[in-house]
Design a protein around this nucleic acid. Structure first.
Lengths: 156, 156
DNA sequence: GGATATTATATTGCATACAATATAATTGCA
DNA sequence: TGCAATTATATTGTATGCAATATAATATCC
């Protein structure tokens, strides 16, 4: 079987394409919910990370990058836009001036109250039951884990 | 339960994030395989679509857009880059001059021979068995289908 | 303690993505 | 036939994404 059949190049047989398509679609799905909060989907993920840290410890650009799998080339300008929008503050660490500490502004903290209805709303709209949702999450995480392993990226 | 718990905003509980992350990772995974062919992942998907049509009938910009879920704002410049790279030709339809017919160049046809080893290579590298791969594909397709339904996009 | 290596972030260049809008051609209907 | 509606693609503007590179600060080693 050294010569793979041409059918392996069939669009329908692709494993990756549905995931790629889903990523595009889910951003379209979130847009009308996030636009009123002045957030894009990538920015929403950053907010989730920051809300999760609760200001208990310093969160740097690198912290967020590792959590979300973003390179600095993505995160730096993204965080500047979020700063311009008033969601976050960027501050050089006094201890290590290479680090930039990202913290929530008051507005960024308050945004959590508006955002917390979004996940449940979308879950309801999906019409999927808990088992189906759990199955999707598990498969999504498994695939991401598989890809990280193939790329030799240390999982968070 | 009108007031959702804040935990719904936890990054770990998100359904969508793993799919979003996977889409970013899979492009990184394909890059070293596709770069030698002078293709990006999105362009590879266009090639899959074109190879699948086999030149049997006219493939327009709209045809590809519906198959891949791309807007014209994405596809138009993408196809121009593929034309500049010598993979495809763009030609106004004589029948309906609004249409632009996309066809493979000789180079684009030959590229299929080089590309056909990629899927099997990646499947091997994944280390997943057939059942796991089938499960992933099914869940990915199911999620994309769910999102299309939520966005009221007619499936291809 | 000073050269070297490492770390953390920023910048640049290129390629997606999509919404909104524009343009041009075709269709449909009075 | 003529004009409004529709269709197909292109353009513009904004926001990702990542690789490659640059910059600056810290750590390490001798």
């Amino acid at each position: 079987m050294d010569d793979p059949s041409d059918s392996s190049l069939s669009l329908e047989k692709q494993i990756c394409f549905p995931f790629y398509e889903a990523a595009n679609l889910l951003q379209q799905l979130y847009r009308p919910f996030l636009a009123p909060l002045n957030l894009t989907y990538a920015q929403y993920l950053v907010m989730l990370a920051l809300w999760g840290h609760d200001g208990k410890s310093d969160v740097t650009v690198g912290t967020i990058g590792r959590q979300l799998g973003f390179e600095t080339g993505t995160l730096s300008p993204l965080l500047k836009r979020m700063e311009a929008a008033g969601h976050v503050r960027r501050m050089r660490s006094p201890d290590d001036e290479r680090r930039v500490i990202i913290s929530l502004t008051r507005q960024g903290q308050l945004l959590r109250e508006k955002a917390k209805y979004i996940p449940d709303q979308l879950l309801r709209d999906s019409g999927l039951n808990d088992a189906e949702l759990a199955g999707l999450r598990e498969k999504g995480q498994a695939f991401a884990r598989c890809l990280r392993r193939m790329l030799q990226i240390r999982s968070v």
